[in-house]
Design a protein around this nucleic acid. Structure first.
Length: 580
RNA sequence: CGGGGAGUGGCGCAGUUUGGUAGCGCGCAUGGUUUGGGACCAUGAGGCCGCAGGUUCAAAUCCUGUCUCCCCGACCA
């Protein structure tokens, strides 16, 4: 491609909207262009990379037995009603009616259409296991787009769906997909960690996310540097050390006593005032459930925090929302002085950090008063006990007890063990060896193409621009000529032709621009190999060859040019091979 | 949806406080001089200042409404 003819151009200045490095570089290099919030066009250079990323995905999916299909973006509402998600999903799903008044929607993911395919075409255990995938547009009317391609409303996703006879077969297959995901990211030059995650709107039993760790990410991770335990904070667990001071023996025999605690409406204030450890107090938080608007009291040891995701999952709702002071008042509760003691008709969920062996300080449900000697089980019900605690940096690893660290990252892909969530609701059955009809056991595996591209750029760059991994670079070689001397132009033209005949992808800067402009654009665009033809290089015996990722350049004689370039390309591909 | 910020040629911005009908840099076009790290000279094209209403002799500027975009949260590939 001749740069003089290329559609699009580079920008010298960073657009004002930019917050993330990769976003700025993609805009400045002319890879993408924004149409509306969270809706982008790909320009020629960006699209070449997208297609390469898609091909990497295809290769790895094919490798584990996947078959590529293509399912529609526009779906009839019927199948989404069958699965129930028509009613579960909020305004992030775009819905409309066709001309006959039939409910339609834009698919945000493709479990429903693929399950429909499965029930039509899978009849027998002999056809299992199998996996299909497609690379298709999704539309999610996200509350807020951000970070360029990191979080958009219209995006391309590679989503794969596997079908199995039983959970055991899914258990066997699932790690293969995880391995393929790691290979895809390695090939694209994006390091990822696999973390345990929440199943979210997909449903199912187990899920992982593949996360590119970066401070500009929007997910929070809990990692163990010692044993490799890794989880999204939403589901991360940790070892809860017992409270150090259980108090004087026989404490749990004492009756509850009300004490005056004027203005002490936080755990820190009240425990300091009463001279007890926060670990011997009970923090009570009141939430409303999203689905049925029930009031739930969540209890946790005073030195720990509630994880709202875990709480929502525990009580079986899609979300919980902190009750407002007005709502608390309406239920006879006082913020800062709450507890379940003496409160009826409210669901109480207790974190397993709270022990019936100890007695605690808790709110007295009266302004400026707390109770002491509160014994769990005796003074309030311990019926719903579970893990609803938020893991924090410094908490102990649930596997090896080393201190955990917190990090941020971008979710590039995810994998879900769906089980029979969709096959049961949509009646996708097969006949097993013993003649019985059974629901298909499913897995689903998503990976964002544009988001992966954003991560590629975020990871592979310097202050000058992008440093493409050759595997997904728009072109392998950036050829540029300096000056208007006829000999220079002739050599550059002939090299362009020669490389083209060898099948090398070349971006040829044939513009009549100054050296500074050409070099700076080459650095910004970031092709892995740069070839400079100039009067000076020819006087030195050839052309200058430089890797974008390296500082030094070398002069290559014209009769050695071909071998040198082909060798460099091979070497660069090897760097990103998942085999290495 | 809650909180914060911004809309002025393609991009980055000034002008708004103190109303007088729009300016700078980059980019673009033409001609010329240049060519190893964002060159220079000359000439030129391009904006009813997001939109609607109002105040006023007069509005980019003041008032009201509205739309869009960005950032922080709640959601996800």
């Amino acid at each position: 491609m001749r740069l003089s003819q290329a559609f699009g151009k580079t920008l010298r200045e960073q657009p004002a909207e930019v917050e993330m490095a990769s976003h700025g570089l993609m805009l400045r290099a002319g890879l993408i262009s924004k149409l509306a919030s969270g809706i982008y066009s790909y320009m020629p250079l960006g699209w070449r990379s997208v297609r390469k990323i898609q091909d990497v995905m295809r290769k790895e999916m094919d490798n584990i037995g996947g078959q590529e299909i293509n399912m529609p973006v526009v779906n009839p509402g019927d199948i989404w009603k069958e699965s129930g998600r028509w009613y579960e999903i909020g305004p992030e799903m775009a819905r409309f009616k066709d001309r006959t008044g039939r409910d339609m929607c834009l698919a945000m993911t493709h479990e429903e259409p693929v399950t429909d395919l499965a029930r039509r075409f899978i009849d027998s255990y002999r056809q299992l296991p199998c996996m299909v995938y497609h690379i298709q547009t999704k539309f999610r009317d996200e509350p807020r787009a951000r970070g360029g391609l990191v979080r958009v409303r219209e995006f391309t996703m590679k989503d794969a769906y596997s079908f199995h006879r039983d959970q055991a077969d899914l258990d066997r297959y699932y790690p293969e997909v995880c391995k393929a995901y790691e290979r895809i990211c390695k090939t694209c030059g994006v390091p990822v960690v696999k973390v345990l995650s929440d199943v979210g709107m997909m449903g199912g039993s187990m899920a992982h996310e593949f996360i590119y760790v970066t401070d500009s990410g929007e997910d929070t991770l809990i990692l163990c540097p010692q044993c490799g335990y890794a989880a999204n904070r939403e589901v991360a667990t940790f070892t809860k050390t017992p409270a150090e001071d259980p108090g004087p023996a026989g404490q749990t025999q004492k009756p509850v006593e009300k004490v005056h605690t004027p203005g002490r409406d936080t755990i820190a204030a009240v425990t300091e005032y009463l001279g007890v450890s926060p670990a011997l107090s009970i923090k009570t938080m009141a939430y409303f459930t999203q689905d049925d608007n029930r009031l739930v009291m969540a209890l946790i040891r005073g030195d720990l925090d509630i994880n709202e995701r875990k709480l929502a999952n525990f009580v079986g709702t899609s979300e919980v929302r902190l009750a407002s002071p007005e709502e608390l008042e309406a239920h006879g509760l006082v913020q800062g002085f709450m507890s379940p003691v003496g409160v009826d008709n409210v669901k109480v969920v207790v974190d397993d950090s709270i022990s019936p062996e100890y007695s605690y300080v808790a709110g007295a449900n009266e302004q400026d008063y707390h109770f002491i000697n509160v014994v769990p089980g005796r003074d309030f019900p311990m019926e719903s006990v579970g893990d609803i605690a938020a893991a924090r940096e410094g908490d102990l690893c649930p596997v090896c007890n080393a201190p955990l660290v917190q990090a941020r990252g971008i979710e590039v892909g995810n994998t879900f063990m769906l089980g029979t969530r969709y096959s049961k609701s949509m009646d996708a059955n097969f006949q097993d060896e013993d003649g019985t009809l059974k629901p298909l056991v499913m897995g689903c595996y998503g990976m964002g193409v544009g988001r992966l591209l954003a991560c590629v750029v975020e990871e592979n760059r310097d202050e000058k621009g992008i440093i493409w991994p050759i595997t997904v670079a728009p072109y392998h070689v950036h050829l540029l000529s300096l000056g208007a001397a006829s000999q220079v132009l002739e050599v550059a033209e002939s090299l362009y032709e020669q490389l083209g005949q060898l099948g090398v992808e070349v971006l040829y800067d044939d513009r009549d621009e100054s050296a500074g402009v050409k070099f700076n654009d080459a650095d910004l665009l970031g092709m892995p190999i740069r070839v400079t033809v100039s009067k000076r290089s020819l006087e030195n015996g050839g052309v200058e060859v430089k890797l974008r990722a390296e500082k030094e350049s070398m002069i290559v004689r014209l009769d050695e040019f071909e071998d040198t370039i082909l060798g460099l390309i091979k070497q660069e591909f090897a760097r990103f091979s998942p085999e290495n």
